[in-house]
Each structure stands twice: as C-alpha cells, then as structure tokens.
Design a protein around this nucleic acid. Structure first.
Lengths: 243, 243
DNA sequence: AAGTGGTCTAGACCACTAC
DNA sequence: TAGTGGTCTAGACCACTTA
C-alpha cells in the first residue's frame, strides 16, 4: 500500500464504485469528499481526474460527478488494454504466461532510422532480437526488437528468451511506462503464414512501437506482426487535455 | 485565444520548443518559469503535465525537465493521431476534406448489443447510417454508424451526408470529446473489395468505437472498415496515472 | 440563489539528483 | 549542500446548472 493520499483515494473510490455503494450513480460533491476523507479538495480533484481519465467517472460542472454507466454495466468494454505496455503482461492477466521462442539474436550497427528513434550516435550498436510468441501453443506474434547495447549491455540469450521488460524492472529498478505506437494492417508474407499458421488470404496486424523508460530514455524499438485474430487493441481517448 | 493561464503557457512553451529556443534540451526549472510567466508554480506544473502527457517533454525529479529528443527530431513520429476523434477532422488537417457517399440511411430497433453500448432501454430506436468515405476520390473507409434517435431526433439525409460530429457541435453546442475504440485486422469481404478497390488478398483494418458527448452520454456506435493502406493509428501510452 | 466543478494562488515539506 | 520535481494544504474567486 502506497502512502500517497491521492492514490489511496483512487483505490478506495474504485472499490466503492465496484461495490455499487453509490446507487444513484452520483458521487458526493468534492467538498464533501474532502471532509469525509480528511484531505484537501485539491487531492480529491486529483484522484477524480485520474478516474475520469480512465473513463470510470465523468464530471459535469454545476451538476456533479457521475459514474459512467457502462463501467458497471459492461465491464468487458472497459478492459483498457491499451494500458498494458508489454506483451507478457497483457496476457499474464489471464493466469497464463505466453511462451517465447527465440528465432534470432545478434548485434548490428544501428540504421539511420534506429539512430533517430532510439536517439543514438552514428556507429552505435543495437541488439536485434527476433522472437515468436505463442499462447497455449498457438503462435500469435512475430516480434522484432531493437535495444541499444548502451542501455542494457548485459543482455544474453537467457534474458531475451523471457520478458525483457520484467527483467529490466527487476534487475535495474527502472520500469517501462511510456510507449509510442503505430497500428496498421497488412497482407501476410510467406514467413508470416508459415510461422503464424495463416492462410494466404489472412492478414496480420502490425504494431510498431518505441518504448521508453520512466526517465524518458528510449529503450526499445519493436515491430510486431500479429495474427489477425489476436490483435485487439483497445483504447480510451479523451480530447480534454485539462487533465 | 483562450484566457486560461495554463493553456496559454502550454501554447507558448510548445512554440518555444518548436523554435528550438531551448538548445540544451532542458527547460528552465519550475520556480523560474513561475517567476518569468508571473504565475504560480501550480499553474506551471499543470501546463508541464499536459506537455508530458503528450510526450513532448519528460521530467526527472532532481534533475529537471527535458524536451523529448524525438519530438523535434522526427515530428512525423509524434503526429498523435489518436487524439483526432472524428474521421473528418483527422483528414482536414491536410487542407482537404474527405468526401462522403451515403449508402444507407434508416431507422431500426436497437439490438441487445446496441442497447448495452448506447445505454438504451428495450424498444428504443436508432438511426443506421452506412457511408463510404473517400479522399481525393479514393474510397478508404466503409462506415456503419448507429445513433439513438433520442439524442439527435432531427437527423436527416443532408446532415448525415456531412460530418455528424461537426453538426452536433454547431447545432447543439455539445462536443464529442471521448471515445472507446477497438482496433482489429480482418480479411476483406466481397463488399470491402468492391467498395474499397481491394484485391482478395488485401485486408481491412476494423475500428469499432463508442463515442461520447462531453457530458458522458454515449452518442454513437461506429464500425469502420478501412483500406489497409490508410489505417495508421498512432497512440501515446503513459502508464503513470500521476497525471 | 444555492450548489457544484474549474481555475489559480502562496507556501510548506518531502524525495531524489548532482556536486 | 543546493537544486529540482512531487505532494499536499487552505482558501479565493469564477462558470455553469438547477430550481
């Protein structure tokens, strides 16, 4: 349990919403919450903003703060999978961990494009890691990752056969919390068809992403070719940049 | 120009970053910015948080605030198209507006699924709007939209042949600012191939979304089948819910 | 007019980084 | 030790909604 005020309030309010404590679908007003939790109104606002950004509540000036009816009614709609960065973690929530088969592992000079994306100097080297991910023995993703040797010189075959993100968190105390991703669809190549068990007419989804450490260092560029039946990217967009 | 302090600071800092004013890639510290703008440190923090959420800067406690090198180096990487909700607006930024061909327009009883997604009572009706979107005379998207007659009873053929989102904004003063979207890839159907000019082996990207008005009312459920060469969904994910 | 969320201030104290 | 961002408070005033 963290000792941050606003995080505790987020957690508590989520629980109370789950438990259907607010039958009217309306939360107490901010000043009341401030009193009952014994914290400032600013801290309440901060917690409510996080919940609003997650699509759990919405606020209406002059009226109050309301629970998004869809959040309780159809929880599956709000799984918010866009908030899972790593592949391993996205699936582990089902209780099972995906398998990894290492197809290729070597070191190459960074291309111009990689230099730009990973903020490298000319002449720097990167690990090139090609992996096949399976889930319950069904291959679903071919993943080509590029990691600068500078940010993780100690990588070896054993490490890259597991979750690299988890290794970084455990071994170096840094975590991967940000990513920039592009999603497209493409006809499958011969290799896709062979490795993922696709028919020629069946496509792949392609996700390309740059992953950042929490200190902003670009950590990995990844190209993922995904069996079309397994690509399901969910995302919640809120244009209000008001926080 | 808005008169909100933090929005003006966001805008100004963005301009200054664009103009390469901070050559060191480091912004002044928050207390200095507070002095030079003549506003409180809280307002500075708020502005910086928005910029950080957009991936433009990153903050490092104890060290300072830095410009994300990728933001200046490769602007195209940061187009952040995930922040454009409507199809019309996503393309209008190129100076041209996409064309719309109305394929179908009628009223049907809401299915069970639509009842759930649009928070409707049994027996309610929805508009069913099927449209083909083109850009520079090339069709790129088949769009099937469902809008409850309750939230926009006055829709007619003329309105739905244009941008529905823009109509809602202009006519009703409400805006569509939130959406929940799912992205998948699929083999193309015969109809896809015919309408979008695809070969049988070429796929479509499928985006399904629920769009909300700013007051939280679910406004539209939309199913978009997109020519694979035109689907390019960019998104920035930040797991820190700290704002 | 009363209630509610939004914006903004001034300042205290903490946690981490760099020297 | 000095500097920097993070958290939190108490309170003022504004804007919108509802009655």
């Amino acid at each position: 349990m963290t000792d941050l005020v606003y995080r505790n309030i987020i957690k508590d309010l989520k629980d109370r919403i789950q438990d259907n404590e607010f039958e009217s679908k309306k939360l107490p007003d901010e000043r009341s919450l401030s009193d009952s939790y014994g914290v400032s109104r600013s801290s309440i606002k901060r917690a409510l903003n996080v919940l609003a950004n997650q699509g759990i509540i919405f606020k209406k000036r002059g009226s109050g703060t309301f629970i998004n009816p869809l959040y309780q009614k159809n929880q599956t709609i709000f799984q918010y999978e866009g908030s899972n960065l790593g592949v391993t973690d996205s699936f582990k929530s089902d209780g099972k961990t995906p398998q990894i088969k290492l197809l290729d592992f070597d070191v190459i000079p960074a291309t111009k494009e990689l230099q730009t994306e990973l903020f490298l100097d000319p002449g720097e080297f990167v690990y090139r890691i090609k992996r096949l991910r399976s889930f319950e023995n069904k291959p679903f993703m071919i993943e080509m990752g590029y990691i600068p040797i500078r940010v993780a010189p100690e990588l070896n075959q054993e490490i890259v056969t597991g979750s690299i993100f988890n290794y970084i968190e455990d071994a170096k105390g840094k975590s991967v919390t940000k990513s920039f991703m592009t999603i497209t669809a493409n006809p499958s190549t011969n290799e896709d068809q062979k490795l993922l068990g696709l028919k020629p007419v069946e496509p792949v989804g392609v996700m390309e992403g740059i992953f950042f450490l929490d200190d902003g260092t670009p950590f990995e560029v990844s190209n993922m070719r995904i069996h079309y039946q397994y690509l399901n990217y969910n995302t919640f967009v809120d244009l209000d940049e008001n926080q």
